[in-house]
Each structure stands twice: as C-alpha cells, then as structure tokens.
C-alpha cells in the first residue's frame, strides 16, 4: 500500500512540476504535447494521473505528519481543475463551457467532501470557526468577509450592468450561426435545376475523360470519419489527362478567383482573410468540406453568402454568388480541385 502510494506521490509531483513548468515556460511547452486525434482521451488520462498523484501525495504528507486539511484539499482541487482547463487545453475553451465544467467540479468536490460525516465535519470546521469568530484572527476574518462579500457582489452586479465605456473592450453579442445550414432540395444555376441529392460532379472522370464514379471511389484509402484520398500524380504535368486535367483547370480557376480569401493552402487564411469576421472557411479542417457532399459545396459556391437559408442567420458571409462570374462547369471544377488539394473525399449520400 505504502509503495503504491509513494509511486502515486512521485507521479503527482512530477506531473504537477511538468504542468507548471510548461505553463510558465520553464521547460518547452511541447514537452508533453497533446497528440492530435487522441486529445479527448489524453485529457481524461492526464486528469486521472493527477488524481492518482494527489492521492499519493496527500497520503505521503499525512504519514510524514504534514496533513493538508480537508478544507484546503477541496479548495485546492477546484482551483487546480479551473487552472488546468484554462491553461493546459489549447486552443482555449470558451467561457461558457469552462463555467459548466467549473460548476460540475464544485459539485463533485462537495460530494467528495461530504461523502462521510467525519470528512464533512473536518471540511466545514474552518468555515464554522470563522463564522463563530473564536480567535481574534477568525474574528478579523469574519469582519473582513462581512464587508468584502457584499462589496464584491455589488461590484459584480455593477460590472455586469454598466455599459462598457468608449474604448473599452465591448463584448460582441454571442451568435449562434449554423455554419453548414441544411441545403435546399434543389438549386437552379444558369437556368438549370440541380437536385442536390442526385447531381454529380461531371468531372470525376477516368484517364480517358469519361465520367466514372468507380474510378474515384477506388482512390479512397481511409474510410473513417474524414475519408482520405490517395495521393496521386501531379495535375500540373502537361500530360495529365482526365480527372487530373480537370483538377488542374479547377486549380487555375481557384487561383484566379478564390485564393484571395481562402488562401494558397486552402486554409482560409488568404490575403484578405483577416478583414472578415469570421474568417473564410478553412477547407483543410476536417469539419468543413470533408463533412459535406460535393453538391453542397456546389450550392454554396454558386449562391454565396446571399443564398444562405434562414438557419444561416446571421448571414455573416460575404462570399459572392459565383454563378454570376463562373459557369457551372467551372464551379464543378473548382470543387473538384478543392477536394483534390485537401486530400478529402466528399461525403456521399449514405
């Protein structure tokens, strides 16, 4: 038991040191980096390590006669979790979610502290001491809280109601934009009606230049959430035919029209990108075109920000309706290029 706990303690100390070191820049922040794709489990795993570590630590301290009181254990744990969520997870978690996590953590600590009668007594003893004002120190603290708490509440209420002054950082209202709203059943481009569920990109062609879905299906190498397509030959090869030729033509159109906003790498960080809020869609993100059908992209490209349906409100998109500038064939080719370049395979109607 003791050996187990010692190991726990060592782990706890090391983990805490590494965490603190990484956050304050003593050791490189990537010492223990979050592994792409495994982060959710990693986060839970790390938290488990910390819990195990703290248990060991508190056991060791206890056996050395340096007990941390239940009260401070609880407070410390809540503080740790808040700190962990705020500093460890990158990109930063939105406040709303942190608030939820924080509340649940507090409830959890309460459940832990009050799980048996003794612990609960120990936990509230310091609070009761202050309330009873037994010693001069406690009395002082009590007086301090009596003044500080209402003052703090007043300040909080004032802060949340007073309009932020000029020059101050005015909070923009929260908006819930549906980024990929449900598309219409069909869309009419250049006088031709495309039924989104059945239309196909006519440029998924085999080397002979004939439409061939099978050919592009064969290129899929990864069937899971983000389907990936096989690397294949260079479309800029002047001899490239069929599918690759169409990709090249799509690429030319992309770099003449789209890359100013969507960027050279299709990552939504083009020349003009940061003039917009939100910035243009990042096609390399597995949450964008990789999740959508090819016809959805076709619809969005041809109709632009103006063509968004009601769920897309507020229509925070300045994408022009490209049907006014490109032919349907050109739009299909651009779509083809976008998928080729990012390596994703469009979602199919399954």
């Amino acid at each position: 038991m003791k050996a187990l706990m010692s190991v726990g303690a060592v782990v706890g100390v090391i983990a805490s040191l590494v965490l603190l070191g990484m956050i304050f820049g003593v050791i490189p922040a990537s010492t223990v980096h979050l592994v792409e794709g495994y982060m959710p489990m990693q986060m839970l795993f790390e938290l488990s390590i910390f819990v195990a570590g703290f248990t060991g630590l508190s056991y060791m301290l206890n056996s050395m006669g340096m007990t941390i009181s239940r009260f401070w254990q609880g407070i410390g744990f809540v503080a740790f979790i808040l700190f962990y969520l705020k500093s460890r997870i990158y990109p930063p978690i939105p406040f709303s979610v942190r608030a939820m996590y924080g509340t649940v953590t507090m409830v959890a600590v309460f459940m832990w502290m009050s799980s048996n009668e003794e612990d609960w007594k120990k936990f509230r003893q310091p609070i009761l001491n202050v309330m009873d004002g037994l010693t001069p120190l406690h009395k002082g603290l009590r007086t301090f809280f009596l003044i500080a708490i209402p003052l703090g509440l007043w300040g909080f209420a004032y802060q949340s109601f007073v309009p932020q002054g000029a020059g101050a950082d005015v909070d923009e209202p929260i908006e819930l934009r549906t980024v990929h709203p449900a598309p219409p059943a069909s869309t009419k481009v250049h006088g031709k009606t495309f039924v989104l569920q059945t239309s196909q990109n006519p440029y998924r062609a085999n080397p002979e230049g004939k439409y061939d879905q099978e050919y592009s299906n064969k290129l899929i190498v990864e069937q899971s959430m983000g389907r990936l397509m096989q690397e294949n030959a260079n479309p800029w090869d002047p001899k490239a035919e069929g599918y690759l030729k169409n990709v090249r033509e799509g690429g030319e159109i992309f770099f003449q029209n789209c890359h100013f906003c969507h960027g050279d790498n299709l990552n939504g960080r083009g020349l003009h990108a940061f003039a917009f809020n939100p910035i243009p869609a990042n096609f390399t993100d597995p949450g964008t075109i990789a999740q959508l059908q090819e016809t959805f992209i076709f619809w969005r490209v041809s109709k632009g920000g103006l063509g968004l349906p009601r769920e897309g409100f507020p229509w925070a998109s300045v994408m022009p309706p490209w049907e006014q500038h490109l032919t349907t064939d050109e739009i299909w080719k651009v779509v083809l290029f976008e998928y080729w370049h990012t390596g994703y395979y469009p979602r199919t109607w399954d």
Binding site: A185, S186, K188, T193, V195, T198
Partner: peptide, 9 residues
Amino acid sequence: GGIGQSSVQ
C-alpha cells in the same frame, strides 16, 4: 414529387 425532379431516375 417536386419541381425539377422530372429528369431524375
């Protein structure tokens, strides 16, 4: 069943 569906198999 819908406008523009007439050419859909």
